[in-house]
Write a protein that binds this DNA or RNA. Sequence first.
DNA 1: CTGTTAGCGCCTTCAC
DNA 2: GTGAAGGCGCTAACAG
Lengths: 345, 345
Amino acid sequence: MVRGVVQRSSIVDVARRAGVSVATVSRALRDMPNVSQTTRDRVLKAAEELQYAASPLASGLVTGRVRSVGVILPYAGRWFFAEAVRGIAEALREEGYDLVLHVLADARRRREFFSSLPVRRRVDAVILVALPLDVREADLLRSLGVPMAAVAEPMAGVHGDRIDNVAAARLAVQHLLNLGHRRIACIGGDLDGPERFGIPGLRTEGYRSAMAEAGLEVEEGWEIDGRFTARGGELAMSSLLSHPGGTPTAVFCQSDEMAFGTLRALRRAGLTCPDDVSIVGVDDHELSETFDVTTVAQPVPAQGASAARWVVRALQEGTGAHQPVQDVAIHPARLVLRGSTSRLP
Amino acid sequence: MVRGVVQRSSIVDVARRAGVSVATVSRALRDMPNVSQTTRDRVLKAAEELQYAASPLASGLVTGRVRSVGVILPYAGRWFFAEAVRGIAEALREEGYDLVLHVLADARRRREFFSSLPVRRRVDAVILVALPLDVREADLLRSLGVPMAAVAEPMAGVHGDRIDNVAAARLAVQHLLNLGHRRIACIGGDLDGPERFGIPGLRTEGYRSAMAEAGLEVEEGWEIDGRFTARGGELAMSSLLSHPGGTPTAVFCQSDEMAFGTLRALRRAGLTCPDDVSIVGVDDHELSETFDVTTVAQPVPAQGASAARWVVRALQEGTGAHQPVQDVAIHPARLVLRGSTSRLP
DNA sequence: CTGTTAGCGCCTTCAC
DNA sequence: GTGAAGGCGCTAACAG
């Protein structure tokens, strides 16, 4: 029975020391009403002296709640995830919930996650961060029967915290149009895969609609996949530079990390930003200021925190079960002007 | 009793369905020896059909283990943390452990963490990521009596996974020396605060020793605090540029993020890298390639994964208690040559 | 206001 | 090789 150096004390020890029953200790420690002030003080003192903290396992076994929330995210674009997790962590801690992190780093991990569902019985709620799910995966998660929220990526029937992706893209492209640009390309995600209806799809839609409104043609090959990484952005830009129909004068990048990559491609090609090509990104990555990238900023920690607060509220109010919802919180996105965009000469 | 849509089945259901006792189910499902093959098969089948998964709460209550590890990190330099966490998450998942994340975002959160110690009873082990602790904090964590490991930041009496910070710094400075530089500055952390003996202290020590070996004087004001952020690096570089005794021809930045900041400061001052000033960083940040920064690369996910495996092993072998150890795994750091450094004309 | 008691779901001796 | 039964530490009725 020697589990570690310290001998964890149980509720019985506290009860004995305070001279009351375990039930009273339980009540006092959880700020329940029916306890006299004097008794409460005595219990609190005893607990303090014994360094007592209730076992979440034992209480969870009884109540069915474990006071922890699962956060599930893929591995791509570290910055966004780190920021979102920061916001979630802050909000959950505020509410006294633990954050259990699950990183679906690759296809195998993802398969394993959905087949073993390690969050089962271990979390009271789930937050998905920028994770597009297929129908089967979504159903599996729903089968957990716990409140669920989705950050950034839209998900049907689940509470969402995100920006208006179409509008954000329009904002970026409109800015380029206002500067006189007409030949505007778009570096985004894979439009043939499952993301077609997700963030890349929506941002591309915004790009198209802004172009169409301006009466402009989107040239063949101007919508190109940058995989939301700097490296991908670089490759995409290189390919744009060797475009048969001529190079665009401006590029809308669906993430700042891809914008960073385009800067490199330009530099390598001996071109200058913004003199030769204007670049606008999305995110307001922490290094966007450093590298002087004009961007459509989105509040990432705030989206995470909002989702966290939502699931906690659902937990407090509801049965703790998953319920179809369609309430979505749209967070503001705004244009941040920097040096990577300029008026077309 | 309606907890969610799904009706979780318990070990009793499986036992009934398989026509055996719960004890047998427990044994069979955990691959224990004394179960006949036929019985085992029957149990496995029943469990499968019922979608049964043992409640970690209930089993944890009995065994005293919760199969989860606490990861504690401050909030600074997002890239490093995201990478470390990725490595840790991967390794823990591999071992079937949950990862409970605690972000000590600011002084208040930090105080709260150490006064309430929310990891108590909720994790079997603890991993610290780049978190310098004072004596009191270290003792509090030790009092948990669980295995503990420290990533990146050295910590007395605790298993560590890190690089040789002195050697890494020497590698960087030596590279500049080899290129003919003599006037070399160093942008690092706060050497007056508690970090004096931590990473910034060690890297500064490496810088000094390399300079001394080359018979060079470190000029007053050349060791400057960049707070390990891009913004801090920018400010530090600006201040170096207005140095009364003349500008250095090369700068050793103790992190790549600070190096990014110095690039911006140079650009703003109308100077070019590496023509006017050479820059070398530490980390091999994902964007270092993009921005062509020469750096001393360190394997971050590997350090995290190694720490995770260490605590799991300690859990399997030992009593699960914290024991003073001094085994430290030193990970390799290597110079990655890029375009931000060049020979002194 | 406080105490007694029955589980929560599982593991683990101890018999058989 | 298998089963019965006693907890693990706590909460939630139900009595007083």
